[in-house]
Nucleic acid binder design. Sequence first.
DNA 1: GATGAATGAGAATTCATTCAT
DNA 2: TATGAATGAATTCTCATTCAT
Lengths: 239, 239, 239, 239
Amino acid sequence: MNAVSAAQEHQNRPVPRPKRKSGGKVKRMPREVRERQMLDAAVEVFARRGYSAASMDEIAELAGASKPLVYLYLNSKEDLFSACIRREAEALMTAVRTAADPGDRADRRLWHALRAFFAHTAEHPAGWAVLSCQARTHGEPFALVVAGLRQQIADLVTQLIAESVRDAACAAPLDEKEVSGLAHALVGAAESLAGWANATAQAGPAAPAARETAATLMNVAWVGLENLVNGRRWAPVRS
Amino acid sequence: MNAVSAAQEHQNRPVPRPKRKSGGKVKRMPREVRERQMLDAAVEVFARRGYSAASMDEIAELAGASKPLVYLYLNSKEDLFSACIRREAEALMTAVRTAADPGDRADRRLWHALRAFFAHTAEHPAGWAVLSCQARTHGEPFALVVAGLRQQIADLVTQLIAESVRDAACAAPLDEKEVSGLAHALVGAAESLAGWANATAQAGPAAPAARETAATLMNVAWVGLENLVNGRRWAPVRS
Amino acid sequence: MNAVSAAQEHQNRPVPRPKRKSGGKVKRMPREVRERQMLDAAVEVFARRGYSAASMDEIAELAGASKPLVYLYLNSKEDLFSACIRREAEALMTAVRTAADPGDRADRRLWHALRAFFAHTAEHPAGWAVLSCQARTHGEPFALVVAGLRQQIADLVTQLIAESVRDAACAAPLDEKEVSGLAHALVGAAESLAGWANATAQAGPAAPAARETAATLMNVAWVGLENLVNGRRWAPVRS
Amino acid sequence: MNAVSAAQEHQNRPVPRPKRKSGGKVKRMPREVRERQMLDAAVEVFARRGYSAASMDEIAELAGASKPLVYLYLNSKEDLFSACIRREAEALMTAVRTAADPGDRADRRLWHALRAFFAHTAEHPAGWAVLSCQARTHGEPFALVVAGLRQQIADLVTQLIAESVRDAACAAPLDEKEVSGLAHALVGAAESLAGWANATAQAGPAAPAARETAATLMNVAWVGLENLVNGRRWAPVRS
DNA sequence: GATGAATGAGAATTCATTCAT
DNA sequence: TATGAATGAATTCTCATTCAT
């Protein structure tokens, strides 16, 4: 099982969206399953409306459960949001980490990580929206989780860049802070591209888009990095 | 007038934050001034709380006006938000455009545009927060304005890249979609770097940070772009 | 103006209970008036239903205002309850204190105080219910106010008893603790009698009942006190 | 068996508070035992929170049973409350009646009854709280039970007083209503003194407090009563 | 006998919005 | 121009109560 398909694993798979209101008797199901449905619904609604505009009513309805049940299992709107963020962050991180399979060259690992990132965000647009937009704007506890995620990814990238540089036995070793900055730029670029890719091509399937997007980024960043490593820089007043 | 100072122009400069609650009759002021105060307050509050969590009460209080007056001038919460977005988008766009002063080499123009972007967003964090986070998540009308802004910036960048390419008389012409993606990557990287730069070194004033940030970005992107233009690309299966 | 009529002063006097829902336009009134109506309604409802069973909806409706207005003026259910208790406690205390007019013999002052107590509780059964039943059962803040009221009354009674004893130049001076116990017993008896009087004779007018009740109490307590002062006590094993 | 120990009989003696949550299968127990546990828990919770604020959840948890079981045995919250009141009222009544053992002089019987009353309420504060505060404020059905209890006690006291009067072969026969009022005053004083005694000296065990309290009360009331019986009254305008 | 799963109904509280002055 | 007074319509959250097992 590769990273991408693994990443898709975590959401409403065989559990059919239950229909309520349609006369039938109450659908009994184990707590675990219900909870997943609720999280799925919550991610969807939070993504669509934003944290405060999302209503527990809508979430419950989309989850096919009653509000009291949502509260019974997930305690409060805040806890629910928190659970969403944690789940989505973990899923994304797992996807990316799994893809950056050790035992390959550093540039290829970065390439795979990028592809996994784009693929995952494309597959889970709602989750990505929650992580990238909603979570950042709602108070410490949430923002911290997202910041942690960012840091983890940036660390991974930093490490990959450092490895490549070591591989390349470059002449001018990079400043650590510069590498870190680079990693953040890359992550930011990736995030932005993810959003853009989602917005631009919502028609076609996800994989090709992920591939292209990753390629674009690699084209700029990696080659730029090589030049950087070789000491060739752009300077504001050059020539 | 340079880009940075122009960017600062649009917000409450000499108009003192009005003191209410201190008894006495109300300070009559021309509509224009009051409206600006309201928009300033609204941007601040929308940035801090998000669109739906922002309350008209808080905005009115911060603006030093009564709620009915806010409604009289700005009609509704939605209109108010819309006005905020438009104003902030215009200000940012103006700052960037003004900085990319024609009559210079394309790479230098991009450099200045980047600097202006960083400087403006650093100077107006609330405005930037509204544009980058809040506006995207609230239904067509708002998202459209922001999309328009993004498009304008991307267009500008695209144009600058294109000019450089023409300057370089490159062999392999770039795919338009690729250029657009590049622009988005650049903007995303810029955003991410802005945040990172802010977090890393919060001591110094904004301008130097903007300069460094822009430099880091140019180091990677521009050189990478040159290579790209010259047909040298990274390929997943290379070597 | 005597104590009893003064005590009646504080509640919905000339303000007519406003009729809502009856088509008419919104009744504008100064905040002070509205607030009093709300407190009146709240006392009524809290007395009828108890703190937790009382619904803000019912209170608002009885006050002839909308719920938001109640919240605007009185903040929260808890604050509203607190305000009720404070107002009622103060009113009762004032009535009793005013009646125990200094410049009279101690036994007569006690007599008047008792009458005022019975008259006031009879005139404001809801207020008395809130003070005597509801407030005691709902957490420190409320209970404290009521405890304070009790203490004030007990202190007053203690003082009156002490004065009488001094007047009587009694042979065996009473233990301070015993006097205090006496005062509490008297207050408790008064409270109980107030409740009983309310329950028993709801038909007739209030004043006569108050007079009779007070007389009964004085008959037992005062004479008993005299005997006590004179050293004649009942003893469990006496003869 | 004396009154005090009889009074303690009615609550969870050897049945240990059941431990739930610790895995393992449920302890099957005879209905009778379970029901008593439930009532005990309910009295506790009703006393602590008041009728409406008490939640069936909390009661069930404290009783160590599941909510459906509570409903199976006790039908509804209202029925449960009703059962609590009935049980506590009966227990208190039994304690008092048992103590007022016929075959003794009337004043001594009253003395024992008072002691039993104080002892029982001190031993079962929750039960007493439910009876004295909660029950009175919740609609006919409950209030009636409590009124019945009050009446029984008042009747008992009235009867004892009457007997004494007969013993004393008094000149001026007492008005029935006056006697009843007296009984209520006595009970109220007792209640108040119970609270005050509890608050003043929380160190010692209950019995001594009960003894003292009863003595204080008898000192005032009984002697006062004797005087009353003998026609010596306090009069508002006397001397 | 015993319970995990589930909910309809209603609680407090807030908010955007409007009059009447 | 400016505002104190007022509210309909949500929103979050809780609770008594019931099934299906």
